[in-house]
C-alpha cells in the first residue's frame, strides 16, 4: 500500500493565451475524499485550470499527477477512465437521448470498449440497472424516459452529476455546478454533494460563497492565474490578501456607511 498521498497534484502549471497568462506556475493538491474549492474573481484562471486537469487544454509547462501517476500528456478520455469525472460550466448532456440513455452511456464508457455491435444496449441490464440507481440517487428517476434536451436547467445539472458519478470517479471536477440554478435547486444540489462528501474527492469551482463555505474542506484562491492562498475555509476567510483581492469587494459593500 502506498502512503496516502494527495489524490491530485498540480505542480507549476502554466498556460498563456497570447499575452494573457491564464495559469501562472499554479500548484495545489486535492487529498483523497476532500472537497477542495477553487475560487477567485472572474478571469482568475479557474476554468482554464480545470480544462488543463481534464486534458482539454495542453499546459505550456507543469505537471499533473493523479494518485501519483503523471497524466499531463494523456488525452481526455484516458484521464476520464483513470477516474476524473466531470461536470461542465455550461451544461453538457446528450440532448436527443433519454435521461436514462445518458447515464447508461456513462456506465458503458467505463465498462470496457464499445465495439459490441449486435446486442441492444438499451436492453442491457448491466448498463440500465446501475444507471437507474444513479438517477434515483440524484432525484431524476421520475424523468428517466424524457429527452435530456427537454429537461429544466436544474435537472440537466443533476443529470450531468449523475453521468459523472456513473463512472465511479475518484475525483469530480465540478465547474460551477450551481450556475444558473434557482435557490431551491441549488440547495438540493448542495445536499446531494454533501451526501457525496467523503466517498469521492471533488475539485469545486464555484462563485456562490455560501455554497463554498458549506461544502469545502479546503479552499484555494486564484487571482491572475496565481495561487493567492490555500487553506481551510476559516484561514482563507481571514487571509488579508484574499480579503483585499476578492472577498474584499463584498466586505467593503457590507460595511455600514
Amino acid at each position: 500500500m502506498r502512503a496516502p498521498g494527495p489524490l491530485l497534484e498540480v505542480e507549476g502549471l502554466s498556460k498563456a493565451f497570447g499575452g494573457v497568462t491564464a495559469s501562472d506556475a499554479l500548484s495545489f493538491t486535492v487529498m483523497p475524499g476532500e472537497v477542495h474549492a477553487l475560487i477567485g474573481p472572474n478571469g482568475a484562471g479557474k476554468t482554464t485550470a480545470v480544462a488543463q486537469i481534464a486534458g482539454e487544454l495542453k499546459p505550456d509547462d507543469g505537471r499533473i499527477r493523479l494518485d501519483g501517476r503523471e497524466i499531463s500528456h494523456l488525452p481526455v478520455h484516458r484521464r476520464a477512465l483513470l477516474g476524473l469525472g466531470r461536470s461542465f460550466q455550461i451544461t453538457s448532456v446528450l440532448p436527443d437521448f433519454s435521461v436514462l440513455d445518458n447515464v447508461a452511456l456513462a456506465v458503458q464508457a467505463h465498462a470496457g470498449h464499445s465495439f459490441r455491435l449486435i446486442r441492444n444496449a438499451r436492453r442491457d441490464a448491466r448498463l440500465r440497472d446501475p444507471a437507474r440507481a444513479m438517477l434515483t440517487r440524484v432525484g431524476l428517476a421520475a424523468v428517466a424516459g424524457r429527452a435530456a434536451g427537454a429537461l429544466s436547467h436544474g435537472e440537466k445539472r443533476k443529470l450531468e452529476l449523475a453521468m459523472a458519478l456513473a463512472g465511479h470517479p475518484r475525483l469530480l471536477l465540478l465547474d460551477e455546478p450551481m450556475a444558473g440554478m434557482g435557490g431551491e435547486d441549488s440547495a438540493r444540489m448542495v445536499e446531494v454533494l454533501q451526501g457525496l462528501k467523503g466517498t469521492v474527492a471533488m475539485l469545486l469551482v464555484e462563485h456562490d460563497m455560501d455554497v463554498v463555505f458549506a461544502l469545502a474542506d479546503r479552499i484555494t484562491v486564484l487571482d491572475g492565474g496565481r495561487v493567492l492562498a490555500t487553506g481551510d475555509p476559516e484561514a482563507v476567510r481571514a487571509d488579508p490578501a484574499v480579503i483585499a483581492a476578492y472577498l474584499g469587494e463584498e466586505g467593503v459593500a457590507c460595511q455600514p456607511c
Binding site: 476520464a80 461542465f88 453538457s92 446528450l94 437521448f97 440513455d101 452511456l105 467505463h110 453521468m163 463512472g167
Partner: peptide, 18 residues
C-alpha cells in the same frame, strides 16, 4: 449509441472516457 452520442456532444463523450 457511442456513435450517436458523439454526434450529439463530442466533448461530453470524451469527458465520459470514450
Amino acid at each position: 449509441l457511442v456513435l450517436q452520442g458523439a454526434r450529439q456532444n463530442e466533448r461530453r463523450m470524451r469527458a465520459l472516457g470514450v
